[in-house]
Design a protein around this nucleic acid. Structure first.
Length: 309
DNA sequence: GCTCCCTTATTG
DNA sequence: CAATAAGGGAGC
């Protein structure tokens, strides 16, 4: 065991963020289930577009820049929606209409950035996330779940066992697209740098800890060594952290990430490039403390002025 | 409630 | 057709 040199952590998130949302009318699905758990009063609404926790700056929240970055082919129309949802009418029978949201690049970037650091978010963390992303809790939760499954799948394919790791497996190279192989070469971290995923908080009992077990993660949550609590124990259960975290006020959400400072915030780079960072971060600034923002955007020099938009 | 997992259905 | 958001079931 020990440290795996080349832990192919997981594939990037959204492979091709074709999200250039040309959203005519982002109608987010009505996922609004009552997430009673969430104490948020506003953001909880599912309608990312309709009901935004943000006063009114939703537009700049993530204005989805023209993403010149991703849209390979389609040029998004003028409108910039966060995510575009499509609702299909009942096909016919009593089939439920399934609505599939297409997340915007920004959203995906932020989600990915977060996912790189944490595979499991607690309510508050999720709350922050979907607040700034203007998504619903359910969406964020689902995204994380899908992401985990995706990683798992990927991991399986690449490590049927555990032997072939350092041995230049052509396979890995072949499939592993690099963490963010986004179209325009946005984030080209082609697995050349620091293993973004290596120090993650993959601490789920059900998972194959063989791989993720690297006790590498040394996140210290604001003085609270989570790693010594539920995290490390193999009996980690989600509910545990939910409870704990809820007790930790907002102040506890200041993970001082020390790992992967190298590559971690690709997000910032990306966003900066696309000019989206300002929107997102600034938005965040309005609602969160600098600490939190830094949490979300670790490497970002916070010059943000909460009211300067 | 949450998760994992499989499945369904949409999207490009 | 691959990718993936979301639905639903099962287990805790």
């Amino acid at each position: 065991m020990s440290a795996d040199p080349a832990l192919p952590q997981c594939p990037p998130g959204p492979k091709a963020p074709s999200s250039r949302d040309s959203s005519p009318m982002p109608e987010i699905y009505g996922a609004g289930e009552n997430y009673a758990s969430l104490q948020m009063s506003s953001a909880e609404t599912p309608h990312a577009e309709t009901v935004s926790p943000l006063p009114s700056s939703m537009d700049l929240l993530v204005q989805d820049s023209p993403d010149s970055s991703t849209s390979p082919r389609i040029k998004l129309p003028p409108t910039s929606g966060e995510e575009r949802t499509v609702k299909k009418e009942d096909t016919a029978q009593g089939k439920k209409q399934k609505i599939r949201t297409v997340f915007s690049q920004t959203q995906l970037h932020v989600l990915n950035d977060r996912f790189q650091r944490q595979k499991y978010l607690n309510l508050q963390q999720m709350q922050e996330l979907f607040n700034i992303l203007n998504l619903s809790y359910k969406q964020v939760k689902t995204w994380f779940q899908n992401q985990r499954m995706k990683c798992k799948r990927w991991q399986k394919n690449h490590w049927p066992k555990e032997s072939k790791s350092v041995t230049q497996n052509s396979t890995a190279t072949a499939e592993y697209p690099g963490f963010y192989s986004y179209h325009q070469g946005y984030l080209r971290n082609t697995s050349g740098n620091l293993p973004i995923w290596s120090n993650q908080t993959w601490n789920n009992p059900n998972w194959s800890n063989q791989i993720w077990n690297s006790q590498s993660w040394s996140n210290s949550w604001n003085g609270q060594s989570w790693s010594n609590h539920s995290w490390t124990s193999q009996t980690w259960c989600p509910q545990a952290w939910n409870n704990q975290l809820q007790n930790c006020g907002e102040e506890s959400l200041q993970p001082q990430i020390q790992f992967q400072q190298n590559s971690i915030s690709n997000l910032e780079s990306i966003l900066e490039t696309s000019g989206e960072s300002h929107s997102v971060i600034q938005q965040s600034a309005k609602y969160f403390s600098t600490q939190k923002i830094m949490d979300l955007f670790p490497n970002y020099s916070v010059n943000i002025q909460p009211e300067d938009v």
